[in-house]
Design a protein around this nucleic acid. Structure first.
Lengths: 111, 111
DNA sequence: TAGCGTTATATTTATGTTCGAATAACGCTT
DNA sequence: AAGCGTTATTCGAACATAAATATAACGCTA
């Protein structure tokens, strides 16, 4: 038995959670949304819709893309996206530590 | 923008979270799984499967039921179920306070 | 023994999610 | 100008999950 938690930011609908986080990290690493999707065994169309939904909900752009050119183009993170990533990272990590302690306090001996 | 979180206990699959919690509270109050389901605008079969899955995963019974007899029968909580409810209550409440603080710390001025 | 309201369970239906294909545009390279 | 690999976008199909429905059993009551 273990604790599982999901945390996300929501406006009218889901805006930013673990899905966009992981995907953006891959985009940052590989410089391409297509490569990121492939690397995560995810269809390009799904990756694209994840980004678009998050952007629409947050109200600012997360990736800056070039189409065409050398290598066909690519995508890189906006500075706002980078801020979101670091904040989410810290938030999620700290939350995990605290929740684990709480879980042990209340369910540790029980389960 | 607001924070949304879901927390549950998991074995091989979801075992105990807010769904079972709310349902068991209603069963406790009404003495019947059927009445509890109706009160929550939920089909009986869904209510039943929620309880069964949780019991199977946790490894102990959550409700004790009589079928037939006066009033058709009914269901009441086991002592283990009562323990789960109080623990989950405290856990969820404390977690909520802490996560809200964390959210404000990391996203308060940003979103 | 017929009727009631419940628990118990399987089967069917509905809903939502994800994938994959199809199409177009873009700008560099050769 | 043709080819390449990418972004951009839409759409129906396939799959997975959730919910509703149907049926049976149970034990008291009258």
């Amino acid at each position: 038995m273990k604790l599982v938690y999901k945390i996300w930011v929501e406006g009218k609908t889901k805006a930013f959670g673990e899905g966009p986080y992981k995907l953006l990290r891959k985009v940052e690493q590989l410089g391409s949304l297509n490569k990121a999707a492939q690397d995560m065994n995810m269809s390009y169309s799904k990756a694209w819709s994840i980004i678009k939904r998050a952007e629409k909900e947050l109200g600012f752009k997360l990736v800056e893309s070039n189409t065409g050119g050398v290598g066909g183009g690519g995508s890189r993170l906006t500075s706002q996206a980078k801020t979101m990533l670091t904040r989410y990272d810290e938030f999620h990590c700290e939350a995990g530590e605290i929740l684990t302690k709480l879980y042990n306090k209340y369910f540790g001996e029980l389960l």
